[in-house]
């Protein structure tokens, strides 16, 4: 049971080759310089981008296949993402953001209440994202991602915008939740401590720049 990616993306004068296989229950950290394609990699898994060439499958089920033309829409992929900067909807309350796409009955579940407590969101439910601090927004985004039923969890620099104290707090909550998660976790991070704490495997994107920039992501290092 694993997430298998063998995919090439071409966008203008940039190419990105991804070859990865991540087992269920493990956390892969992707590192690499800015603009090397870390977020692009997550987007192909989430279904926001299609592989130009290649195939992505999750537990044997095809998500994207350039040969057969199959492409599973993002809403059907069971992939949850914590977007860089949160990706919250500014016109909806915190509560509506967390419950976005979920049945309203979710509000009364133990999972929902647990997440609100874990991420200390109790007092913020009726606020709108633009009135929150960066740390608060990130915690809302994490609660939203963990609430959605998913097989893959994508974390795009989840603690980058946080100050030191909320970073520790968020990391602690993330560690507990991802340990019990049971699916595939992919973490994009610049922070060595975070990678060391959360990841079971690390892969680095290598870039060769020229007229044509090509980036490669593969060759897992198992910690």
């Amino acid at each position: 049971m694993s997430l298998d990616i063998d995919c090439r993306l071409l966008r203008g004068k940039f190419s990105l080759d991804i070859q990865l296989s991540v087992e269920r229950g493990s956390t892969l950290a992707i590192t690499g310089e800015n603009g090397s394609g870390k977020t692009t990699t997550l987007d192909t898994v989430a279904g926001l981008l299609a592989c130009t060439d290649g195939k992505i499958s999750l537990h044997g089920k095809v998500l994207d296949d350039s040969t057969s033309g199959e492409f599973v829409q993002p809403e059907l992929r069971r992939v949850s993402t914590v977007f860089q900067g949160g990706g919250l909807l500014p016109h909806l309350s915190v509560e509506k953001n967390i419950l976005f796409g979920r049945n309203t009955a979710y509000k009364n579940t133990a999972k929902f209440e647990d997440l609100i407590e874990q991420f200390n969101l109790g007092g913020l439910m009726s606020r709108k994202p633009p009135t929150l601090s960066g740390g608060q927004r990130q915690r809302v985004a994490l609660a939203r991602a963990f609430l959605a039923p998913s097989d893959v969890l994508l974390l795009d620099e989840p603690t980058t915008s946080l100050d030191a104290s909320s970073r520790d707090e968020v990391r602690r909550a993330m560690r507990v939740l991802s340990a019990n998660y049971g699916g595939v976790v992919i973490l994009v991070s610049h922070d060595d401590t975070e990678v060391a704490e959360l990841a079971t495997q690390v892969a680095k994107i290598t870039v060769s720049r020229g007229d044509f920039t090509s980036a490669k992501l593969g060759g897992l290092v198992v910690k």
């Binding site: 279904g47 992929r77 993402t81 990706g87 796409g101 979920r102």
Partner: peptide, 25 residues
């Protein structure tokens, strides 16, 4: 557009994303 995409990943189809996210914004 990233927000609309983000909404899709949370289980919302293109039409519902258009109504709740795009039109909401």
């Amino acid at each position: 557009r990233r927000l609309v995409g983000a909404a899709r990943t949370f289980g919302v189809g293109p039409w519902r994303a258009f109504v709740t996210v795009t039109l909401g914004l």
